[in-house]
């Protein structure tokens, strides 16, 4: 009896050890490239060529100083903040407004309009990229902030509408009706009741919009051409992508490019994972 138990616990222990090994393997796989990148950003290009895998012999900051200035990072980061901030706020406001109307104000049009937003969840950027480029050109918004912001807001709307409407539906209608009886207008109800009560789903929508907009590359790359309007991903691609032999500077630029999202992730880890799970509703 004792023998059986012993072999069983030995086997269990081996299994547990193996499981740990596998988990550690995947964790190392996930972060090693990033650590490799960070380490090499502190080497001079000459040192990198001699020592590609090890830790730097002298930790130098010159790559960062160079990349920061020559890559025009202050303006790139500022632009990204502007695009992401305005898109997120506008998406929140518009999708809460429409979500409130869809959920709580009876109207025959809801079925069609709400339905068209839901179809939008399935639309891909590719299918609108070329026509959008032509339309933006035609209305004269090519190479302007507005010409980037309007598409960004429109693209973020379906997810905001979907999550917002579902959430607002769950707010008790009795609350709204009693406010109506007291003479409140729908606008007053929206501001005084809906916005505060829907704040939790607002966080989710904001997280999804921020990550999506901050990292967006394809559209802004074709809708703008001037340096002053570039966002961080486009700037990193144009600057670091072109440095095919000046590795130190390239790596420093990449590290600068990933720091904002890394910070965002560190501060909002719980909310981000919750948002991703909530956003996985396509189909």
């Amino acid at each position: 009896m004792r023998d059986v138990k012993d072999t069983r616990s030995t086997r269990a222990r081996i299994n547990l050890g193996l499981t740990y090994a596998v988990m550690i393997f995947f964790t190392v796989m996930a972060i090693y490239p990033l650590i490799w990148l960070a380490m090499n950003s502190f080497k001079t290009t000459t040192e990198f060529q001699l020592n590609k895998l090890g830790i730097p012999r002298d930790w130098v900051l010159v790559n960062y100083q160079d990349a920061w200035v020559r890559g025009k990072f202050p303006s790139l980061i500022l632009n990204s903040i502007i695009y992401t901030g305005i898109t997120t706020v506008a998406t929140l406001i518009f999708s809460f407004m429409a979500g409130f109307a869809f959920a709580k104000i009876p109207n025959k049009a809801t079925k069609y309009i709400h339905g068209s937003f839901i179809i939008g969840l399935l639309l891909t950027l590719q299918s609108i990229m070329v026509p959008l480029f032509l339309i933006i050109n035609w209305v004269g918004l090519y190479n302007s902030r507005l010409g980037v912001l309007i598409p960004y807001i429109g693209i973020a709307m379906p997810m905001g509408i979907y999550l917002g409407t579902e959430y607002i539906k769950a707010i008790p209608t009795a609350l709204i009706e009693s406010a109506r009886i007291d003479g409140a207008t729908y606008m007053k109800i929206f501001i005084a009741i809906i916005v505060p009560m829907a704040a939790p789903v607002g966080v989710t929508v904001a997280i999804l919009t921020v990550t999506g907009t901050w990292n967006e590359f394809m559209l802004i790359n074709i809708l703008t051409s001037s340096d002053a309007l570039k966002s961080l991903p486009v700037g990193v691609q144009k600057f670091a992508g072109a440095l095919s032999s000046d590795f130190g500077k390239q790596f420093a630029a990449l590290v600068i490019g990933l720091i904002p999202m890394l910070l965002f992730y560190m501060f909002f880890r719980k909310e981000i994972t919750k948002g991703v799970a909530a956003g996985a509703v396509k189909g």
């Binding site: 996930a30 990292n215 990193v236 965002f264």
Partner: peptide, 8 residues
């Protein structure tokens, strides 16, 4: 972690 970083 890799998922949150910009694809570029």
């Amino acid at each position: 972690l890799p998922t949150v970083i910009s694809t570029v």
